[in-house]
Design a protein around this nucleic acid. Structure first.
Lengths: 202, 202
DNA sequence: ATAGTTCAGCACCGATCGGTACTGAAGGTG
DNA sequence: CACCTTCAGTACCGATCGGTGCTGAACTAT
């Protein structure tokens, strides 16, 4: 690796694909999959439809790539939270991250993974299902992490990792909905803190 | 009142408007506001576009009427819960109702008030805002009810009605998202029960 | 320089979007 | 009965939807 990459033959593209993808992510985040038209997207990306199709495939593929970018960017708090040393720290950081990502100034309110396509017509079913899988993967990661905490003795033996993961995920999803409705970061942080006051739900 | 209503002059409409509205509600519930096309709606309602416009105004008005129908039907648990005698009963019934309404066999999964239009393009902004207001009214009702519970001595004097209302609403919204993603009624009932184990979040 | 390859813009595609004018039928009232 | 009002179906509206064929420009490799 670390080989100097040869310039690809042919005319190089005249725009920054990473930058354009970031712009598309924001549009999908704000307007949802079905609510974001190609005109909205390409206008924000600063490129033509032709260039978008050449670089990203089609609208559905563009969304999937935008979701991957979202996971690595605004939603990076998920992986960071799960790596923390105790289950309570994991849950706290997960919910705090949800609040912050959903109320980040300069970005749309709410969570792309929730409001990107919670319900959809025929054209949006595939993306709706993709997002449901994405959210469920997050829940599974929490589940595995909490089971590990039980095995480690960090959580009591009678703690229920499945229930804890579902509970934390449910609160996080609710926070995303509340944020989309205009709740302030302060209010949501109070809710997040309150929701873990009884941890681990004995 | 109770006057025998005179038949309106002119040709009577050839369909049951209440029944048609119920069908429209289901389509909006399953596909969201933007994802439900007029063709989808009128096909499910069993009427033509012309009849729909004559009876309901336009797509936006049809959605508002469908939301009112939803509030009086599948979401009637809200008012029933708030009328219960203690704050804990209110919260428990509210969350149980959320779970049942979001996983009712024969109806779409999830909550119309959440997935009807959480994010939207330009055409759906008004409905998105309408739903945000609708959800916030539910939160306000909980808030008022919990404040009353504090005044009554049902909740301790240091309980925070605003926080409690936001917390319960957040869990309910999260339940709706989880249901939309395919979570089972049993799983959600366990989450709902667990979320109130520490009531009133002392 | 020439060949080979890719890019980007324009124009355009059929389909569908929400919404409406027009017409004839269907019912009421007198 | 005649008259009047309303309904419902057809056919259509301009706009927009996601997506593409074509062409000339731009770039690398030879």
């Amino acid at each position: 690796m670390d080989v100097a990459r040869r310039s690809p033959i042919g005319r190089p593209r005249g725009f920054d694909a990473d930058e354009a993808l970031g712009r598309a992510m924001v549009v999908f985040w704000r307007q949802g999959y079905e609510g974001a038209s190609l005109a909205d997207l390409t206008s924000a990306m600063g490129i033509t439809k032709t260039s978008m199709y050449a670089a990203f495939g089609n609208k559905e593929e563009l969304f999937r790539k935008a979701l991957a970018r979202y996971a690595d960017g605004p939603a990076a708090y998920v992986a960071k939270a799960i790596a923390l040393p105790t289950a309570l720290e994991v849950a706290t950081a997960f919910l705090d991250g949800s609040v912050c990502a959903s109320t980040q100034p300069g970005f749309p309110i709410g969570c792309l993974g929730v409001q990107g396509a919670l319900a959809a017509g025929e054209n949006g079913l595939a993306i709706r299902d993709t997002l449901a899988v994405w959210r469920d993967e997050g829940r599974t990661h929490l589940h595995d992490r909490f089971r590990q905490a039980v095995d480690d003795g960090d959580l009591p033996p009678d703690a229920d990792p499945d229930l804890l993961a579902r509970y934390v995920m449910t609160v996080a999803n609710g926070i995303a909905v509340q944020a989309a409705g205009g709740s302030s970061r302060d209010d949501l942080q109070r809710v997040a803190a309150a929701s873990l006051r009884n941890w681990p739900l004995t």
